[in-house]
Simulated assay, not measured.
Amino acid sequence: MPAPLNTFKKSLAEGQTLFGCWMSIAEGYTAEILSGAGFDWLLIDGEHSPNDIRSIRDQMVALKGSASHPIVRVPVGETWIIKQVLDVGVQTVLVPMVETAAQARDLVRACHYPPDGTRGVGYAVGRVSNFGQMENYGPTANDQICLLVQVENKTGLDNLDEILAVEGVDGVFIGPADLSASLGYLGQSMHPDMQATIMDALQRIDQSGKAAGILTPDDAMIQASLDAGARFVAVAMDIALLLNAAKSAASKWQGRKS
């Protein structure tokens, strides 16, 4: 039995546009709830959320069989954590703070088994191969891994064209918050100068043939990003969905106290 088809990677290669939700609550129960919400993909955030490899695994289990493809953002682009998330069954990895083509090439190698890469061969005891019961996993795994890299500071933006030229990078995600801070607009990603910079970057990514991605809950920015060529777009965040709904419910009835 070969490695499962990466439907997210296939859809991007076919030019489809996919909408997702950011998951920061770090619980399998929440992931299971969101699995039925209708998003094309759900991102398990290991960078700015209290996730570890066990909670990532638990959310992967909760999403098994879901039509929403799971993506994991690792906390840092290190071989050891990429190895771990791949071994618990992750097929699509998002790596933050990618600044150079050399770094991107190292990440490509970390995602692939030898002789194409440096990924450790431990699938015989991992969830990824159904604990050794998927006999043909190893020889077929490389083709189903999807690597997404985040460009989110001035150095990365300056090197964007070189990063886009790296074979094995499937998509480039623009991080509006960190990029804005790096360019002197901390907390001002909606500033006209930043919007122009972000949309230009998305256009360059799209024109390179790679998939462009972004996270924003703002409807106008979502549409502008789509117009600029973005094809994997996170349009919601679990914490914001919960908090906004809770505040709305509370304010609705607080005003009716006797």
Rank of each mutant, 00 (worst) to 15 (best):
L183G: 00
L186E: 01
Q207S: 10
G184Q: 03
Q203C: 08
P176L: 00
G171L: 00
Y185F: 15
L186W: 00
P176F: 00
F173P: 09
E167Y: 09
I214F: 06
I205T: 07
L179D: 00
G168H: 06
Q188I: 05
A196L: 10
G184E: 00
A201W: 06
P176H: 08
M194E: 07
L164K: 11
M194L: 13
F173C: 10
A177I: 12
L179P: 02
I174E: 00
A211W: 10
G209L: 11
A181M: 11
M194R: 02
T197D: 02
E167V: 11
S182A: 11
A201L: 01
V172L: 00
K210N: 02
A201P: 03
L164P: 00
T197C: 05
G168N: 04
Q207W: 00
V166A: 04
A196P: 08
G184Y: 01
Q195L: 12
D200N: 15
Y185C: 01
P192L: 04
P176K: 04
A181I: 09
Q188T: 10
S182M: 02
M190P: 11
K210E: 03
T197V: 13
A211Q: 12
M194T: 12
G187Y: 08
A201V: 07
Q195S: 00
I205P: 09
T197G: 01
S208P: 09
A165H: 09
D193L: 12
H191Y: 04
A211Y: 00
L183A: 03
S189D: 11
D206Q: 15
G213S: 07
G168Y: 08
G184H: 13
A201H: 12
D206L: 06
T197H: 06
A212C: 02
V169W: 15
G168I: 08
L160K: 08
L183N: 03
L183S: 02
A196I: 09
I174K: 11
L183F: 12
E167Q: 15
P176R: 09
S182Y: 05
D161C: 02
V166P: 15
Q203N: 13
V169F: 12
A201Q: 06
M190E: 12
D178S: 10
G175T: 07
G175K: 01
V172S: 09
D206K: 15
L202Q: 04
A165P: 14
G171E: 01
I198E: 00
M190W: 09
F173R: 08
V166C: 11
V166W: 13
D161V: 10
A177F: 14
